[in-house]
């Protein structure tokens, strides 16, 4: 398998007055061709900022990619000019967002919003682009695509709008689709349909997907590999099977424990104690230590590194080789 996208020590910091907020603080991540990688974590863990960094859509100021590389097919996206980046965005890498209700422009028809991408990136004529737009709408499951193309977004439901977003995102056959919590705002039956659609399209066009979510149910459904983020860092990375079989990091364990199960008769749902610390007050040692049930002295004084463990990696002293021998 060859890597399509590789993040190396990516750091995206925000500047608020005099303080620096390390929203993404040294993230390493690999997405192979055709692979679906889920990026999991609580709110504020830096997953959305990671995805926006890949798109180079961090609002600047105050945000800035201060260090690291984003290798896409071997090219470092961080070093590209704005012009070159514009040729990649929406063409090779496209993105769908959490809020389908507000992500489409209310004053342009659905057709226009697909056609403009095709005309811009694929240099299609208006007629050809229109033809293709109808095809795309049919592909994402609209049976009356020809009529729909001249409709405005406000006539569609949230699920339908997310389908339109997918049609826009997939229209140029991107190599990578970034989906930032694509199903969070949708109701459960629609969630499943949207996930199925993404799975189907990624298989058909060999598109890699970076799925950002905090919903482990979604992860088990669609992802090949999972990357767990906490406080701007990757804390665990494993294949979906390994992770659900045996989560290594106490944080991942906590996330798993928070999923309600059908057979257990627990009255209270498990939750990880405490809250995510704000980026300006990260602890000195392991960032999860204050909330970790297994934390010991070393965790509070020393920051663990992300270590490989066979086919997976984890950032935790509990799985440190040195600790194991002690």
């Amino acid at each position: 398998m060859t890597a399509l996208l590789e993040l190396k020590n990516l750091k995206t910091h925000f500047q608020r007055r005099k303080t620096t907020i390390p929203a993404v603080d040294g993230v390493d991540l690999v997405i192979n061709k055709g692979e679906t990688v889920a990026l999991v974590g609580e709110s504020g863990s830096g997953k959305s900022i990671t995805s926006l960094s890949i798109m180079r859509l961090i609002p600047s100021p105050p945000g800035k990619i201060v260090d690291g590389e984003i290798l896409f097919n071997g090219n470092d996206l961080v070093k590209l000019s704005d012009n070159e980046m514009c040729k990649i965005r929406g063409n090779d890498i496209s993105m769908i967002f959490q809020e389908p209700m507000t992500s489409l422009n209310p004053v342009l028809t659905i057709g226009e919003q697909i056609i403009e991408v095709l005309m811009y990136h694929q240099k299609m004529s208006k007629n050809a682009a229109r033809q293709k737009a109808v095809e795309m709408l049919e592909l994402v499951g609209f049976s009356r695509a020809k009529a729909l193309i001249d409709d405005y977004p406000h006539r569609l439901s949230g699920g339908m709008r997310q389908r339109v977003m997918i049609a826009i995102a997939m229209s140029c056959n991107p190599k990578l689709l970034i989906a930032d919590e694509p199903t969070t705002a949708l109701d459960v039956t629609i969630q499943a349909q949207i996930l199925d659609l993404m799975k189907e399209l990624s298989k058909k066009y060999d598109t890699s997907i970076l799925l950002i979510t905090h919903d482990l149910g979604v992860v088990s459904e669609i992802a090949d590999r999972v990357v767990v983020m906490y406080c701007g860092q990757v804390v665990e990375e494993a294949s979906v099977d390994d992770l659900f079989e045996e989560p290594l990091h106490p944080y991942t364990n906590g996330l798993m424990g928070s999923i309600p199960s059908l057979d257990g008769d627990v009255d209270r749902l498990y939750s990880i104690a405490g809250t995510v610390p704000p980026p300006e007050h990260f602890p000195v040692g392991c960032r999860f230590a204050p909330r970790c049930p297994h934390a010991f002295d070393r965790c509070r004084n020393e920051a663990p590194a992300l270590q490989r463990k066979g086919s997976r990696s984890v950032r935790c002293f509990l799985h440190d080789d040195k600790e194991a021998t002690v």
Binding site: L57, R89, G90, N91, S103, N105, P106
Partner: peptide
């Protein structure tokens, strides 16, 4: 500040 502006940016327009 609206989401559809971010969508338009993500399409690669200047």
């Amino acid at each position: 500040k609206q989401d559809y502006i971010r969508t338009a940016m993500s399409k690669g327009f200047m």
